[in-house]
Write a protein that binds this DNA or RNA. Structure first.
Length: 156
DNA sequence: GCCAACGTTGGC
DNA sequence: GCCAACGTTGGC
């Protein structure tokens, strides 16, 4: 059984439409240790991802992606020109990791944070936790299925 | 643009 | 190791 995750992005930074265009992308730039540990230790090829837009109108889940490579050393940590450059990172012992994610679908109707809040079955989702800032976070199987189901239902 | 929540930094 | 200051996130 593949695990389920949620990955956050701001649409003006990298949107689900960008992912559809690119087909796949390396999810670089995660610079939080808790999130890093998930990417390094937990994410695996075949896992499924809710693609979430923050600072969006509305903020919410906009589609699906899947993990096609896991535990890749994030190349931006070694690139002095990158915003995500980390001078302390070593090539033989990378600090930061990135998954390669591949486009699956764009929801016909996005599931907004408000939709999620209103749904009793989703009340414990990490993304609803006040002050939750993890840019990649675990999602329960049931939660993943439910969000998908809601999007199908909402789009008629 | 506001602001609460949280992570990181750095002086001590 | 404490903790204040600061920066960032992200809903609203």
């Amino acid at each position: 059984m593949s695990r389920k995750w949620l990955a956050k992005s701001e649409p003006n930074n990298y949107s689900i439409v960008d992912l559809r265009r690119d087909k796949k992308t390396l999810w670089t730039g995660v610079r939080n240790y808790q999130a890093r540990n998930l990417l390094r230790d937990e994410w695996a090829k075949g896992d499924e991802v809710l693609f979430y837009h923050s600072n969006a109108k509305p903020s919410g889940v906009y589609g699906l992606a899947k993990v096609t490579k896991a535990k890749v050393a994030d190349p931006t940590q070694f690139d002095p020109k990158s915003d995500y450059y980390d001078p302390k990172a070593k090539k033989d012992k990378p600090t930061w990791f990135a998954p390669e994610i591949t486009f699956v679908s764009i929801f016909k109707a996005p599931i907004s944070i408000e939709d999620i809040k209103k749904d009793a079955a989703l009340k414990n989702m990490e993304v609803l936790r006040k002050g939750s800032r993890l840019s990649v976070q675990p999602v329960k199987d049931m939660e993943y299925k439910r969000v998908f189901m809601m999007s199908e239902k909402k789009s008629g």
